[in-house]
Design a protein around this nucleic acid. Structure first.
Lengths: 345, 345
DNA sequence: CCTTAGCACTCTACGCACCCGAGTGCTAAA
DNA sequence: TTTAGCACTCGGGTGCGTAGAGTGCTAAGG
């Protein structure tokens, strides 16, 4: 669908206006506020055409127009002026992110908070994929006869602990021994490359076959398949400030949706291809409950490899320009920061 | 204030009714539903007396009555029939809690979820005070030249990790050495009893004085003073189901309040005296923002010593009977479960 | 003296009519 | 092709009247 220049201007002005005011936009106001240089009647004709073509719609006959999902799509792809952090903002953001962090989890939290505050939408971050990070260290602490605590430090400094269950009793010595061997063998290895049979090399030196099996299982399978739990969420309450969620039922169902980490992870995955932002507008969202929201997601990387995704979620009437700008900006920063945390790799 | 038997019955019936319906209760309905055996007119007289004495109030002249905070207080202290888990519920609760857990954090989470679901209010849990738990194990993992990851396992199986900063470079050997020494020295010691000078005994054998200082500081001070962060929260969205929070602004401000962990911790502390439930009704709450809510809190214990608190937060029109019952029930269970996790003690 | 039936009164919630204003589409003239 | 003019539509706010629930008061009854 080709739109002539004037239609483009009308669509852009109208979308900008609606994003700002959340009120249907009428021809008179549009002409006045965005001095389009033509009369309201002309704009009305254009608007009628745009509506017929599916870019706009009217909530009711005697109201102004609102962009449809298709309208937003066109706006995002072709019309919006890209937001860039002004020098002041840039400084503030950098300063804020500068606090030294050693733990990836904190870095991610901070990124999520930053994004939520800057955009006033809810922010989501999928933690780095374990497969794409590097083994740094493991500790095995026996808890009782049948449970061992495994503390795993991976390379952009991520610490996690898991309890593994061992059938037969396990001695502290076996734990120490196995941890030592693993640390020697795996330091700097990419998690995704830890092969089951490579571990076989140390099987002999570990006294307890049970322990060996449980931990090997954890390292090769267990740790990798938990991504959905690891979605960080900030600024969920920002959503309540949006006029589209003044209705408590809608707000409630959306907030409930945000508790379903696996769904969020799925949505974040959609944008985990490219390191420029992906915009998912309303109906485009595969998750039905999010069809009246928009999501802006960008991947973040480690050494050029995509390891996670970060984004914001807000109403379809979203400040796309700022959202896209901020998400990309924060994603870049996050990638940089994580790179700084890598030690082994 | 002494209330005669009939006034007590009226107040009880009215409160029960209002808790159930959330609508002001009139004399006619009250008599009908709770067959009080007297006429509405008589009840009206009683209600007028109760209102004058401050136990009830009317939203407007031609409406029924609503219990005041004072009315709820009297209800809670003197009138309500205590809720006990029926045999069916008891079974379900036990079954649910039975899944074997080794990690205190999971146990607490589960308790919080259970409480939130059972009551349909928001549940809060303050994690066990570190001072009151026992040292089990420490690991020190060097992250880079100046940062060491300390993983501490305390005795009702609580795992936490902290990064300590060390001024000068630190060797892996020093870390291993120090961890070994600490594990030998402190196993089974109550955190609150770890004295700075007792640690001096191992100062010599640790090569790095910096490391020693940083970790000693962490063990004696750092770890203990972080309680406010460790408040677990579940079922916050339940609040949106309560009719008193149908107004989005109120809901928003309350939900925002729930993000302030330190405030919640403070509120939980109020109930951390006795192991029977403490009820804080409306205006009694020291936190102004929670003055139109009620909180039911109970302490939970380890070996008889209070180590934390668990509770629910809901509207003043709360099902106090059930809330008190459930909170005490879950607190007891939590205490029992934690005791089962103790190994060193 | 306490209880209760009766009654007048009060107040809210709700439905309805009404109007105002913003906005539209259409037509005809520039 | 643009625009001025005009009739039309519709949502939202306002005012009014009514129904219903509830009260307080008074006077009669046990």
């Amino acid at each position: 669908m080709v739109l002539d220049e004037r239609k483009r201007r009308v669509l852009q002005a109208l979308t900008d206006d609606y994003i700002e005011t959340a009120e249907p936009v009428g021809s008179r106001n549009l002409v006045r506020k965005h001095n389009l240089g033509v009369s309201p009647a002309t704009v009305r004709n254009e608007m009628a055409d745009l509506e017929e073509a599916g870019y706009l719609h009217q909530p009711h006959t005697s109201a102004g127009r609102i962009p449809s999902d298709k309208g937003y799509r066109y706006y995002v792809d072709e019309l919006m002026t890209r937001w860039e952090p002004g020098p002041g903002e840039h400084g503030a953001l950098v300063r804020r992110a500068r606090a030294v962090r050693v733990i990836t989890e904190e870095v991610i939290h901070e990124a999520a908070r930053l994004l939520a505050q800057a955009t006033n939408y809810a922010s989501l971050v999928a933690a780095p994929r374990v497969e794409a990070s590097y083994f740094r260290h493991i500790e095995l602490v026996p808890l009782d006869e049948t449970h061992v605590l495994a503390v795993i430090v991976s390379d952009p400094g991520f610490v996690q602990h898991r309890v593994v269950e061992v059938r037969r009793g396990v001695t502290p010595e076996a734990c120490t021994r196995m941890a030592e061997e693993l640390n020697r063998l795996l330091f700097g290895v990419r998690f995704g490359d830890i092969a089951r049979d490579a571990l076989g090399a140390i099987k002999e030196s570990v006294r307890s076959a049970d322990l060996y099996d449980a931990v090997a299982e954890l390292l090769t399978d267990g740790i990798a398949h938990q991504s959905s739990e690891r979605v960080y969420l900030e600024g969920t309450l920002n959503i309540l400030s949006q006029p589209e969620f003044r209705d408590i039922e809608r707000a409630k169902s959306l907030l409930a949706m945000l508790e379903a980490r696996d769904v969020l992870y799925q949505v974040l995955s959609l944008g985990a291809r490219s390191s420029s932002a992906t915009v998912i507008i309303g109906q485009e969202n595969p998750v039905p409950e999010l069809r009246d929201c928009s999501v802006v997601v960008s991947a973040y990387t480690l050494n050029g490899e995509v390891i996670g995704a970060i984004g914001v979620l807000g109403p379809t009437r979203m400040e796309y320009s700022k959202a896209v700008g901020m998400v990309e900006y924060v994603a870049d920063h996050l990638s940089d920061t994580l790179l700084g945390l890598v030690r082994g790799g």
